[in-house]
Simulated assay, not measured.
Amino acid sequence: MHRLLQVGLVLMLLSTGRVFAEDLLFEETFDQPLSDAWQIKGLAENDYRVCDGALEVRVKPAGADGEQPRLLVNLPFSTGDMVIASVEVTVAERRLQRGEMAGMSLIDADGSMFRVRKTNVDGYFVMAPGQPEFIGPEGEEGDPLQYTVKYWPAQESAGPLRIIVRGHYAHFQTGPDDQGKFRNYFHSAIRESKTGLGFALFVQGLNPDNDCWIRFDNFRVVKP
């Protein structure tokens, strides 16, 4: 079966809420202290807390060494497998300022490969990555300046952020929403990798004086 057809079939089945038998790779509901599986990067002890059944993380800029503040967990899979990671992401205190963000990333030993997030774009609280849309004249499809990007409001009713990995592609999806449905937004080819893979919960701040906190809850990674 052609790879694009496979990708379309996978997303169609996931969007319908079809039930799959699945292997649980990792789950954290944050009702108890953090699992020892987590690695903490770029965060001091007072920058994160398990509070009221969720993980709360202070939005802060990268350190002097450029390390992005995050908590990561390594798991046994490859980019050729089908893996689904999901997490609820909400703002707990204050608000994200322009350019700041929080979300989940697919990682390997060489760093981040694909990330989904809630962010402030020009004063709007949206989900990213957005969908590129061609707005230029016919024949100029190769010019990146002839594209705009469509974003979606970062509403809690959309449900958890999800990353779906399959066949060396990664997909951005949300759901189930308040009606039990899933929605697909963006997908991209990723580098092939078999070792050092996992997922990170990250924040990215710009203003050290913005004391914004993000809540992460119900983090779950499965192999359908």
Rank of each mutant, 00 (worst) to 15 (best):
E141M: 01
P137W: 03
G142Q: 03
P132E: 07
E138K: 11
P137V: 06
D143K: 02
Q131T: 15
P132L: 08
N120V: 04
G139K: 01
P153K: 04
V149A: 01
G142F: 01
E141A: 05
Y124S: 14
T148I: 02
D122W: 08
G123V: 05
P129S: 15
N120C: 04
P132K: 08
E133Q: 11
W152S: 07
G136Q: 05
G142W: 02
F125R: 15
Q131N: 13
Y151T: 13
D143E: 04
I135V: 13
A128W: 09
Q146M: 10
K150T: 00
T148G: 03
A128D: 15
V149W: 02
D143S: 09
E138M: 09
Y147E: 05
E133V: 13
P153I: 05
P144D: 00
T148L: 09
G139P: 00
P144N: 01
Y151P: 11
F125E: 15
K150R: 11
A128T: 04
Q146A: 07
G142V: 00
K150I: 00
E141R: 00
P144H: 03
T148Q: 08
V121Q: 06
E140M: 03
E138R: 13
W152C: 07
P153D: 13
V121H: 03
G130S: 12
A128L: 14
G123H: 07
V126G: 12
E138T: 11
